[in-house]
Amino acid sequence: MTRSVAFDVFRFAVILIALVLALVPILWMVSMAFKPVAEWQATGAALTWVPRAPTLDNFRFLFGQSGSDLIVALDRKVGKPILSSLLSSGFGTLIAMSAGTAAAYGLSRFGSGANLPLALIQLRLFPPMAVMIPVMIMWAFLGLIDSWWGLALIYGIVTLPFAFWLMKTFFDDMPKEIEEAALVEGCSRWRVFTRVTLPMMAAPLAAASLFVFILNWSDYLIALLLTTREWVTIPVYMASLSSSMTGQLYGAKAALGLIAAVPPVILGLVIQKHLVRGLTFGALKQ
Protein backbone atom coordinates (compact mmCIF):
# COMPACT_ATOMS: atom_id res chain seq x y z
CA MET A 1 0.00 0.00 0.00
CA THR A 2 1.37 3.41 -0.84
CA ARG A 3 1.30 5.57 2.22
CA SER A 4 1.20 9.30 1.84
CA VAL A 5 1.83 12.08 4.30
CA ALA A 6 -1.74 13.25 3.77
CA PHE A 7 -3.03 9.89 4.92
CA ASP A 8 -0.88 9.99 8.06
CA VAL A 9 -2.18 13.44 8.94
CA PHE A 10 -5.75 12.35 8.30
CA ARG A 11 -5.33 9.26 10.48
CA PHE A 12 -3.70 11.26 13.24
CA ALA A 13 -6.56 13.78 13.25
CA VAL A 14 -9.33 11.16 13.26
CA ILE A 15 -7.73 9.11 16.02
CA LEU A 16 -7.16 12.24 18.08
CA ILE A 17 -10.84 13.19 17.80
CA ALA A 18 -11.87 9.64 18.72
CA LEU A 19 -9.59 9.66 21.77
CA VAL A 20 -11.03 12.98 22.95
CA LEU A 21 -14.59 11.73 22.50
CA ALA A 22 -13.80 8.51 24.37
CA LEU A 23 -12.15 10.32 27.25
CA VAL A 24 -14.21 13.46 27.82
CA PRO A 25 -17.23 11.78 29.50
CA ILE A 26 -14.90 9.86 31.80
CA LEU A 27 -12.81 12.94 32.60
CA TRP A 28 -15.93 14.97 33.33
CA MET A 29 -16.88 12.47 35.99
CA VAL A 30 -13.35 12.49 37.41
CA SER A 31 -13.46 16.28 37.52
CA MET A 32 -16.90 16.26 39.17
CA ALA A 33 -15.71 13.80 41.81
CA PHE A 34 -13.18 16.36 43.05
CA LYS A 35 -15.43 19.41 42.90
CA PRO A 36 -16.70 21.17 46.03
CA VAL A 37 -20.46 21.59 46.40
CA ALA A 38 -20.36 25.15 45.09
CA GLU A 39 -19.09 23.99 41.71
CA TRP A 40 -21.43 21.00 41.28
CA GLN A 41 -24.12 22.82 39.43
CA ALA A 42 -22.30 25.88 38.21
CA THR A 43 -23.51 26.72 34.71
CA GLY A 44 -22.76 29.15 31.92
CA ALA A 45 -19.67 31.23 32.52
CA ALA A 46 -19.20 29.70 35.98
CA LEU A 47 -19.05 26.16 34.60
CA THR A 48 -15.71 24.63 35.47
CA TRP A 49 -14.06 21.90 33.42
CA VAL A 50 -11.30 21.52 35.96
CA PRO A 51 -12.26 22.04 39.62
CA ARG A 52 -11.12 25.45 40.86
CA ALA A 53 -10.86 24.26 44.43
CA PRO A 54 -10.29 20.51 44.20
CA THR A 55 -11.29 18.60 47.30
CA LEU A 56 -11.65 15.09 48.63
CA ASP A 57 -14.88 16.03 50.43
CA ASN A 58 -17.03 13.91 48.14
CA PHE A 59 -15.10 10.79 49.06
CA ARG A 60 -15.06 11.72 52.74
CA PHE A 61 -18.80 12.21 52.61
CA LEU A 62 -19.35 8.75 51.12
CA PHE A 63 -17.35 7.14 53.88
CA GLY A 64 -19.30 9.05 56.49
CA GLN A 65 -16.77 11.64 57.57
CA SER A 66 -18.21 15.05 58.23
CA GLY A 67 -16.39 18.28 57.56
CA SER A 68 -17.65 18.82 54.05
CA ASP A 69 -20.06 21.49 52.91
CA LEU A 70 -22.75 18.88 52.53
CA ILE A 71 -25.56 19.55 54.96
CA VAL A 72 -27.22 16.21 54.50
CA ALA A 73 -25.97 13.19 56.37
CA LEU A 74 -25.90 9.77 54.77
CA ASP A 75 -28.09 7.28 56.54
CA ARG A 76 -25.88 4.53 55.11
CA LYS A 77 -22.22 4.68 54.29
CA VAL A 78 -20.63 3.31 51.15
CA GLY A 79 -18.62 0.54 52.81
CA LYS A 80 -21.37 -2.07 52.81
CA PRO A 81 -22.35 -1.62 49.14
CA ILE A 82 -18.70 -1.92 48.13
CA LEU A 83 -18.44 -5.10 50.21
CA SER A 84 -21.66 -6.37 48.64
CA SER A 85 -20.39 -5.74 45.11
CA LEU A 86 -17.09 -7.44 45.90
CA LEU A 87 -18.61 -10.50 47.56
CA SER A 88 -21.41 -11.08 45.05
CA SER A 89 -19.16 -10.52 42.01
CA GLY A 90 -16.30 -12.53 43.52
CA PHE A 91 -18.30 -15.57 44.54
CA GLY A 92 -20.42 -15.32 41.38
CA THR A 93 -17.16 -15.55 39.43
CA LEU A 94 -16.12 -18.55 41.53
CA ILE A 95 -19.39 -20.37 40.75
CA ALA A 96 -19.29 -19.56 37.03
CA MET A 97 -15.62 -20.48 36.68
CA SER A 98 -15.85 -23.74 38.65
CA ALA A 99 -18.88 -25.06 36.80
CA GLY A 100 -17.78 -23.56 33.50
CA THR A 101 -14.21 -24.85 33.58
CA ALA A 102 -15.26 -28.37 34.59
CA ALA A 103 -17.95 -28.53 31.91
CA ALA A 104 -15.63 -27.06 29.27
CA TYR A 105 -13.03 -29.72 30.01
CA GLY A 106 -15.64 -32.47 29.97
CA LEU A 107 -16.89 -31.37 26.57
CA SER A 108 -13.50 -30.57 25.09
CA ARG A 109 -11.91 -33.93 26.05
CA PHE A 110 -14.72 -36.46 26.37
CA GLY A 111 -17.56 -34.93 24.34
CA SER A 112 -19.84 -35.01 27.37
CA GLY A 113 -22.73 -32.58 27.64
CA ALA A 114 -23.01 -31.88 23.93
CA ASN A 115 -26.26 -29.99 24.60
CA LEU A 116 -24.48 -27.39 26.74
CA PRO A 117 -23.03 -25.05 24.11
CA LEU A 118 -26.36 -24.23 22.52
CA ALA A 119 -28.23 -24.17 25.84
CA LEU A 120 -25.72 -21.66 27.19
CA ILE A 121 -25.91 -19.47 24.10
CA GLN A 122 -29.67 -19.38 24.45
CA LEU A 123 -29.29 -18.49 28.09
CA ARG A 124 -27.25 -15.49 27.00
CA LEU A 125 -29.79 -14.52 24.37
CA PHE A 126 -32.61 -14.10 26.86
CA PRO A 127 -33.01 -10.65 28.28
CA PRO A 128 -32.63 -11.03 32.06
CA MET A 129 -35.84 -9.04 32.34
CA ALA A 130 -37.69 -11.97 30.73
CA VAL A 131 -36.78 -14.54 33.38
CA MET A 132 -36.83 -12.33 36.42
CA ILE A 133 -40.38 -13.14 37.57
CA PRO A 134 -39.64 -16.81 38.30
CA VAL A 135 -36.21 -15.91 39.63
CA MET A 136 -37.71 -13.38 42.04
CA ILE A 137 -40.26 -15.96 43.21
CA MET A 138 -37.64 -18.69 43.62
CA TRP A 139 -35.20 -16.40 45.39
CA ALA A 140 -37.94 -15.23 47.77
CA PHE A 141 -38.85 -18.87 48.45
CA LEU A 142 -35.22 -19.77 49.15
CA GLY A 143 -34.73 -16.70 51.33
CA LEU A 144 -32.10 -15.31 48.96
CA ILE A 145 -33.59 -11.86 48.41
CA ASP A 146 -31.38 -8.99 49.59
CA SER A 147 -28.28 -11.08 50.26
CA TRP A 148 -24.89 -11.12 48.61
CA TRP A 149 -24.98 -14.92 48.38
CA GLY A 150 -28.29 -14.81 46.51
CA LEU A 151 -26.77 -12.34 44.05
CA ALA A 152 -23.63 -14.47 43.76
CA LEU A 153 -25.74 -17.48 42.77
CA ILE A 154 -27.60 -15.66 39.99
CA TYR A 155 -24.39 -13.97 38.81
CA GLY A 156 -22.73 -17.37 38.64
CA ILE A 157 -25.50 -18.65 36.40
CA VAL A 158 -25.76 -15.56 34.21
CA THR A 159 -22.02 -15.48 33.46
CA LEU A 160 -21.64 -19.26 33.17
CA PRO A 161 -21.90 -19.09 29.33
CA PHE A 162 -18.89 -16.78 29.15
CA ALA A 163 -16.81 -18.89 31.55
CA PHE A 164 -17.71 -22.06 29.67
CA TRP A 165 -17.00 -20.76 26.17
CA LEU A 166 -13.78 -19.05 27.10
CA MET A 167 -12.39 -22.09 28.87
CA LYS A 168 -13.57 -24.41 26.11
CA THR A 169 -11.60 -22.53 23.48
CA PHE A 170 -8.56 -22.52 25.78
CA PHE A 171 -8.83 -26.29 26.33
CA ASP A 172 -9.36 -26.90 22.61
CA ASP A 173 -6.18 -24.94 21.86
CA MET A 174 -4.09 -26.81 24.41
CA PRO A 175 -1.82 -29.55 23.03
CA LYS A 176 -2.98 -32.97 24.24
CA GLU A 177 0.46 -34.64 24.18
CA ILE A 178 1.33 -33.69 27.75
CA GLU A 179 -1.93 -35.10 29.11
CA GLU A 180 -1.40 -38.27 27.11
CA ALA A 181 2.10 -38.62 28.51
CA ALA A 182 0.75 -38.32 32.05
CA LEU A 183 -1.93 -40.94 31.26
CA VAL A 184 0.72 -43.35 30.04
CA GLU A 185 2.58 -42.76 33.29
CA GLY A 186 -0.46 -44.20 35.03
CA CYS A 187 -2.24 -41.07 36.30
CA SER A 188 -6.03 -41.26 36.47
CA ARG A 189 -8.03 -38.92 34.24
CA TRP A 190 -9.05 -36.86 37.25
CA ARG A 191 -5.46 -36.56 38.43
CA VAL A 192 -4.37 -35.47 34.96
CA PHE A 193 -7.07 -32.78 35.00
CA THR A 194 -6.22 -31.40 38.45
CA ARG A 195 -2.44 -31.91 38.53
CA VAL A 196 -1.42 -31.44 34.91
CA THR A 197 -4.05 -29.55 32.94
CA LEU A 198 -5.24 -26.96 35.44
CA PRO A 199 -1.74 -25.80 36.49
CA MET A 200 -0.82 -25.42 32.83
CA MET A 201 -3.93 -23.35 32.30
CA ALA A 202 -3.24 -20.96 35.17
CA ALA A 203 -2.88 -17.89 32.96
CA PRO A 204 -6.01 -18.51 30.86
CA LEU A 205 -7.94 -19.33 34.03
CA ALA A 206 -6.88 -16.03 35.56
CA ALA A 207 -7.81 -14.08 32.43
CA ALA A 208 -11.21 -15.75 32.17
CA SER A 209 -11.88 -15.14 35.86
CA LEU A 210 -11.10 -11.45 35.54
CA PHE A 211 -13.33 -11.23 32.48
CA VAL A 212 -16.25 -12.88 34.31
CA PHE A 213 -15.62 -10.69 37.35
CA ILE A 214 -15.93 -7.54 35.21
CA LEU A 215 -19.26 -8.78 33.84
CA ASN A 216 -20.60 -9.46 37.33
CA TRP A 217 -19.30 -6.18 38.69
CA SER A 218 -21.10 -4.34 35.86
CA ASP A 219 -24.57 -5.62 36.69
CA TYR A 220 -27.28 -3.18 37.67
CA LEU A 221 -30.67 -4.64 36.73
CA ILE A 222 -30.42 -7.92 38.65
CA ALA A 223 -29.21 -6.25 41.82
CA LEU A 224 -31.95 -3.66 41.43
CA LEU A 225 -34.57 -6.42 41.47
CA LEU A 226 -33.01 -8.80 44.01
CA THR A 227 -31.63 -6.48 46.67
CA THR A 228 -33.58 -3.97 48.67
CA ARG A 229 -31.56 -2.53 51.51
CA GLU A 230 -28.96 -4.54 53.41
CA TRP A 231 -26.88 -5.80 50.50
CA VAL A 232 -27.50 -3.33 47.67
CA THR A 233 -24.54 -3.18 45.29
CA ILE A 234 -22.65 -0.04 44.26
CA PRO A 235 -24.80 0.88 41.21
CA VAL A 236 -28.05 0.46 43.15
CA TYR A 237 -26.66 2.42 46.07
CA MET A 238 -25.50 5.13 43.67
CA ALA A 239 -29.00 5.65 42.32
CA SER A 240 -30.20 6.13 45.91
CA LEU A 241 -27.87 9.11 46.39
CA SER A 242 -30.55 11.57 45.38
CA SER A 243 -33.93 12.42 46.80
CA SER A 244 -36.50 15.16 46.71
CA MET A 245 -34.97 16.43 49.97
CA THR A 246 -31.33 16.62 48.88
CA GLY A 247 -31.60 16.80 45.11
CA GLN A 248 -28.84 15.16 43.10
CA LEU A 249 -25.66 14.75 45.10
CA TYR A 250 -23.64 15.28 41.91
CA GLY A 251 -20.15 15.19 43.34
CA ALA A 252 -20.75 12.32 45.73
CA LYS A 253 -22.30 10.27 42.94
CA ALA A 254 -19.39 11.03 40.65
CA ALA A 255 -16.93 10.00 43.36
CA LEU A 256 -18.80 6.72 43.76
CA GLY A 257 -18.93 6.27 39.99
CA LEU A 258 -15.17 6.66 39.92
CA ILE A 259 -14.79 4.02 42.65
CA ALA A 260 -17.03 1.66 40.66
CA ALA A 261 -15.36 2.36 37.30
CA VAL A 262 -11.73 1.95 38.29
CA PRO A 263 -11.53 -1.84 38.93
CA PRO A 264 -13.07 -3.00 35.62
CA VAL A 265 -11.10 -0.50 33.54
CA ILE A 266 -7.82 -1.65 35.08
CA LEU A 267 -8.71 -5.36 34.95
CA GLY A 268 -9.90 -4.90 31.37
CA LEU A 269 -6.55 -3.45 30.36
CA VAL A 270 -4.79 -6.35 32.07
CA ILE A 271 -6.68 -8.95 30.03
CA GLN A 272 -6.80 -6.85 26.86
CA LYS A 273 -5.64 -9.61 24.55
CA HIS A 274 -8.36 -12.01 25.69
CA LEU A 275 -11.23 -9.54 25.36
CA VAL A 276 -12.17 -10.41 21.80
CA ARG A 277 -12.24 -14.13 22.55
CA GLY A 278 -14.35 -13.57 25.65
CA LEU A 279 -16.84 -11.21 24.09
CA THR A 280 -17.45 -13.36 21.02
CA PHE A 281 -17.84 -16.62 22.98
CA GLY A 282 -14.53 -17.81 21.60
CA ALA A 283 -15.67 -17.48 18.00
CA LEU A 284 -12.78 -15.12 17.37
CA LYS A 285 -9.28 -15.32 18.74
CA GLN A 286 -6.92 -12.43 18.63
Partner: peptide, 20 residues
Protein backbone atom coordinates in the same frame (compact mmCIF):
# COMPACT_ATOMS: atom_id res chain seq x y z
CA UNK B 1 -15.40 -38.23 34.38
CA UNK B 2 -16.80 -36.15 31.52
CA UNK B 3 -20.32 -36.72 32.79
CA UNK B 4 -19.34 -35.73 36.32
CA UNK B 5 -17.49 -32.63 35.14
CA UNK B 6 -20.43 -31.33 33.12
CA UNK B 7 -22.94 -32.12 35.85
CA UNK B 8 -22.69 -28.84 37.84
CA UNK B 9 -23.21 -26.75 34.70
CA UNK B 10 -26.15 -28.95 33.66
CA UNK B 11 -27.76 -28.49 37.06
CA UNK B 12 -27.30 -24.71 36.99
CA UNK B 13 -28.85 -24.55 33.51
CA UNK B 14 -31.80 -26.64 34.64
CA UNK B 15 -32.11 -24.47 37.72
CA UNK B 16 -32.31 -21.24 35.73
CA UNK B 17 -33.81 -22.38 32.43
CA UNK B 18 -36.16 -25.33 32.62
CA UNK B 19 -37.83 -25.01 36.00
CA UNK B 20 -38.33 -21.21 35.86
Amino acid sequence: LGFRLTLPAQILVLFIAVFP
